[in-house]
Computed example of a mutant assay.
Amino acid sequence: MISLPPPARSTRGWSAAWTTAPQRPGTGFVSNWSERGFAHQTIRQIVRPTIGGDTIRVRLSNVYGTAPLTVAGATIALGAGGAAVQVDTLRHLTVDGERTFNVAPGAECATDPVPLTTAGLEPVAVTLYLAAPTGPATYHAQAMATSYRCEGDHQADTDGGAFTETSQSWYHLSGLDVRGGPEHAAGIVVFGDSLTDGTASTPDADRRFPDALAERLAAAGRPRAVLNQGIGGNRVTVDSAWLGDRATSRFRRDVLGQPGAGTVVILLGINDIGISEVAKASPFPVFAPYTEVRADEVITGHLDMIRQARTAGLRVVGATVMPAGPSVFSTASSEAKRTAINTWIRTSGAYDAVIDLDRALASPAHPDRLDPAFDSGDHLHLNDAGYRAMAQAVDLDALG
């Protein structure tokens, strides 16, 4: 699959404060609105930028659309809980000065800047009124946050009462950028799979690994943008209709396309080796295709991403692959692959720095398993304490 280039837009003076990785419309792990899309409906989506500023813009994605996306109106405001927003912060969004605008198929667009002071680590609501049928919608499957929908035009509502339908995905929303406000070091893109995406963390609580890392940086007096570019089920080497383009392909768009980013943390590989085992045991349609992946193929993919990052001038930090026993992902074969990949990450010197999440999160008694205190219950994903432990395992100086 051909990698899409970073969006064509000016990045001068802007820093990405919040992002998510676009995905193809699909059934996914849970029901969502992406395949049907929207018509004469308003969607309100709540996100939490990790740094603040006094000016903001929104990035919208139609990367997987086959027709122009017409936005009949859009607003942004500080959140006030649920679907409500703070009345005096509501701003209308425009593109080239127009409140109605199009996003071309296969493309992303940035709105005009609007004055809105945000402190960072506080909720921001983006509301889109989509009057004309959109067709299937570019989305992000696992938001771990509630999005709201209602019939008709409610883009300027502040009390949220009309928004009676909910979803756990984000739609057409790919980023919020800020400028102004305090100076920050360059942003950090966390590029990964469900362990970056935050699967099994508490919904609407912002307890994913990148959230915990952003909070730790802020508490240490070193606030920086931490951008979550995880996709649940994503693989280094395999394209999937439901689980995203392979990491080596989407890296250019999802990492190098982020304004103000200076460091990337790569945490990938468990799905390449684990889904190889699922194919042998109990195939599940969302994991297709069931491609057998070798450890050296995962390592070659890591080297490709390192090369892309270095060419763009980014610092590259590698994270070891965490254990998955006794889940279906863990067999003698997959453990041998995981050991080989982690040995290479630790000892090859290919990365500028290494975060050894494997050793930090493993059970002291059973190194092929997560520490029970961090296990969400499926032996693969973490609970809130586990995601905090991931953030605590990061040497902040290693981030550059």
Rank of each mutant, 00 (worst) to 15 (best):
A247V: 03
P285Q: 07
G232K: 06
M305H: 02
V264Y: 15
Q229H: 13
T320Y: 03
N228T: 07
L267W: 03
R315S: 12
G325M: 06
D245L: 11
P259Q: 07
G260L: 09
N271V: 11
L303E: 08
E292A: 11
A312M: 06
G233E: 15
A312N: 03
K280V: 13
I273V: 14
R307P: 00
G269D: 10
R253A: 06
R224V: 07
T311R: 04
D272L: 14
L303G: 00
A247H: 04
E292K: 09
V226E: 07
G325I: 05
R222N: 12
D296L: 00
G244W: 10
R224S: 12
Q229A: 15
V298F: 02
F284C: 04
S249T: 13
P323N: 08
G274R: 04
N271C: 15
W242I: 09
A309T: 04
A281E: 06
G221Y: 05
R294C: 00
R252L: 11
N234K: 07
T300D: 05
G313C: 12
V316L: 01
V286D: 01
G274C: 13
D254I: 03
P283K: 10
R250N: 08
A261L: 15
D304K: 05
H302V: 02
T248G: 12
L227I: 13
R235L: 12
L256Q: 03
I270N: 12
G318D: 02
V298R: 01
D272C: 14
Y290T: 04
R222T: 09
F284H: 09
W242D: 15
E277W: 13
D296T: 11
R294P: 01
D254G: 05
A324P: 01
R253M: 13
I299M: 00
Y290L: 05
A309W: 03
P285A: 10
Q229M: 14
T311F: 00
A295K: 11
P283S: 06
Q229K: 13
S240A: 12
G260M: 12
G318T: 01
V317Q: 07
R222H: 06
G260N: 11
G232L: 13
G230D: 11
I273C: 08
A220C: 07
G313V: 07
V321Q: 02
D296N: 08
T320K: 05
T311K: 05
A319S: 04
N271I: 09
G318P: 10
L268Y: 02
D245A: 14
G244H: 10
R246S: 08
L227Y: 07
D304A: 09
G232V: 08
G257E: 02
S276V: 14
I231M: 10
A288V: 09
F284K: 11
R235C: 10
S276T: 15
D254W: 07
L303S: 02
K280G: 13
L256N: 01
I275E: 08
E292Q: 11
V286E: 09
F251G: 08
L303W: 02
A279R: 13
M305P: 00
D239M: 04
